[in-house]
Design a protein around this nucleic acid. Structure first.
Length: 568
RNA sequence: CGGAGUGUAGCGCAGUCUGGUAGCGCACCUGGUUUGGGACCAGGGGGUCGAAGGUUCGAGUCCUUUCACUCCGACCA
């Protein structure tokens, strides 16, 4: 391709709303163009990269036996009403009506559509297993789109769904997909980690996330320094922590603690390790059908509440903060809450670490008073669960190694769904005994357009992008230093033609611009290699350089084709 | 939705406090010079100043309403 013919509107300055390197370089390099909040156009260069990434995904999935289909983007709402997600999915689901006043949604994910497709054509266990996928647009009306392609509202996603006769076969496919995803991300040159995850709104039992390690990642993941354990903070587990200090013994008593509300204050007031304080976190829980209630979560003062875990412990849809006025209405006092003398009908949840806790200090549910010397005895029907965040330095449950935090970009997520969708949608088949059974399903997603951003987050420098081998829009760029110098442009064109003949994906910068200008654009766009045709053609020499700076050498013109073919 | 902020040329911004010819840099067009690290000279095109309403002889600037976008928190590929 000739640069002079391509629409590559590179920019010296980025729009000021771009903060991440991937966002800045994708816009400055003329890959994408913003059109609205979370909406982007792909320009020729961006489209090439996107297609290359799509191809890698497609090749690996096809190799693993999955079949590509393409489902409608506009989906009748009736399917969503049937699965019960029309209400539950919330505002992220873009709903609209057609001219006949029928409800439709723009697909944010396609479980319903795919199940519907399969139930119409698959009737027998003999047709199973089946793994269908598509690489198509999705629309999620995100509360806060940001970071360019990282969190758009409209985005390209590969979503796959597998159908099985039984749980074991679904698990086999799940592992196959895990391996396939690893191959895909490895081919794209990404440094990633597979971590255990919360399955969130999609539902189901087991789920794993593929995290590209990058400081700008929006997810916190917990990884073990000694083994390969990794988990999203929302699902991470660690060995129970044992406090080395003993708590000062005290008899159970009410203690005046004027204006001592926070864990730090209490800790210094009683000269006691926060581990022996009972922290009480009040939240309002929202359930299906608009039901809501106040829930108190009790944990060690040294721990932090993990909201997703807390949410799961009570099967709620959402947890929201509440203010002290709302607490007062039900007879609670912020800063002095505890598990005893609670007003009736307040739901409570205890963290695992409090079981058998002794010599504790907790709020007395009365202004300016705490209890000391509390030995906790929980009732049989108390809700006890893991509701706290793993902390850095906690011990790994697999090897006892030290756990640390790192940041990740979620580029893939695979779920063991079971019959979560097939049952309500009555997607059933006949097994070998002629019995009707719902399909056992798995679902597998990759954020394809997000991958563009993720690759750059991991591969860039202060000058621009550094595309990996399988994602780069071009393998090599031929740069003509001075286009007006006929010898230079002739030789450059000849090299360009010969490389094309060798099936090398080559770009020639044949614009009538100065050398420095073209180099800046080359570096910004981030093609891995360049052949620079400049003044030294007089001596029969051109330069061969790599974008990462590893290679910089002068090569005889007669050898340049071979040199490029060798390395690309 | 809560908190903070911004809307002026394709992009980056000044002008708004104190109302009086809509500006600067980059980009773009024409001509010329230049050609190894984002050149220079000369000339030129491009604006419903986010939108609506109001005050005023006169509004980018003041008032009211509204919309959009961005940043920090809960969602997710």
């Amino acid at each position: 391709m000739k640069f002079s013919n391509l629409l590559i509107p590179t920019l010296k300055e980025a729009p000021n709303d771009a903060t991440l390197p991937s966002h800045i370089y994708l816009i400055r390099g003329g890959f994408i163009q913003g059109v609205g909040s979370g909406l982007y156009n792909f320009l020729p260069l961006g489209k090439i990269v996107l297609d290359r990434i799509k191809n890698v995904v497609k090749e690996e999935l096809d190799m693993a036996g999955a079949q590509e289909v393409s489902l409608g983007f506009v989906t009748p709402a009736s399917l969503w009403i049937e699965s019960g997600r029309f209400e539950k999915y919330g505002k992220e689901l873009l709903r609209f009506k057609d001219r006949k006043d029928n409800d439709f949604v723009l697909g944010p994910t396609h479980e319903e559509m795919m199940v519907n497709l399969v139930k119409q054509s698959v009737k027998s266990y003999k047709q199973l297993p089946l793994n269908l996928y598509q690489i198509n647009l999705k629309f999620r009306d995100e509360i806060r789109p940001r970071f360019g392609l990282m969190r758009g509202r409209e985005f390209l996603m590969k979503d796959g769904y597998s159908f099985h006769a039984n749980e074991d076969d679904m698990k086999r496919e799940f592992s196959l997909m895990e391996e396939t995803y690893k191959k895909i991300f490895t081919r794209l040159g990404l440094d990633f980690r597979v971590v255990e995850a919360d399955s969130g709104a999609i539902g189901g039992t087991g789920s794993k996330e593929f995290m590209v390690l990058a400081d700008s990642g929006e997810d916190t993941i917990v990884v073990c320094k000694s083994c390969d354990y990794g988990a999203n903070i929302e699902a991470a587990k660690s060995m129970p922590y044992i406090c080395e200090e003993n708590a000062p013994k005290a008899n159970f008593a009410k203690f005046n603690t004027p204006e001592i509300k926070t864990i730090e204050d209490l800790s210094s007031f009683f000269k006691i390790n926060p581990y022996y304080l009972v922290k009480t976190v009040a939240k309002k829980a929202l359930y299906d059908g608009g039901k809501e209630e106040i829930v108190l979560f009790f944990l060690r003062g040294s721990d932090e509440l993990q909201e997703i875990k807390a949410l799961n412990s009570i099967n709620a849809n959402d947890l929201i903060d509440i203010n002290s006025d709302e607490l007062e209405e039900v007879g609670l006092v912020a800063g002095f809450m505890g598990p005893f003398n609670l007003p009736n009908d307040i739901k409570t949840v205890f963290d695992n670490s409090l079981v058998g806790g002794i010599n504790l200090v907790c709020g007395a549910n009365e202004k300016d008073y705490h209890y000391v010397g509390l030995d906790l005895e929980l009732e049989k029907d108390a809700i006890i669960d893991d509701i706290v965040s793993v902390k850095e330095g906690d011990k790994c449950i697999h090897c006892g190694g030290s756990l640390v935090y790192t940041k990740g970009i979620e580029v893939g997520h695979i779920f063991q769904l079971g019959t979560r969708y097939s049952e309500p949608l009555k997607a059933e088949f006949l097994d070998e005994n002629g019995k009707t059974k719902p399909f056992v399903m798995g679902t597998y997603g990759i954020g394809v357009s997000r991958l563009l951003a993720a690759i750059i987050e991991q591969h860039h420098d202060e000058k621009g992008c550094l595309w990996s081998k399988e994602s780069t829009p071009f393998d090599v760029c031929v740069i003509v230093s001075n286009l007006k110098d006929e010898k230079q442009s002739d030789i450059a064109l000849k090299i360009y033609d010969e490389l094309k003949d060798k099936k090398i994906n080559v770009l020639i910068d044949d614009r009538n611009e100065r050398f420095g200008f073209k180099m800046k654009d080359y570096e910004l766009i981030g093609v891995p290699y360049a052949v620079i045709v400049g003044k030294k053609v007089e001596e029969g020499i051109v330069e061969f350089v790599s974008r990462d700076g590893e290679i910089m050498k002068e090569i005889d013109i007669s050898n340049i084709i071979e040199a490029v073919v060798d390395i690309v």
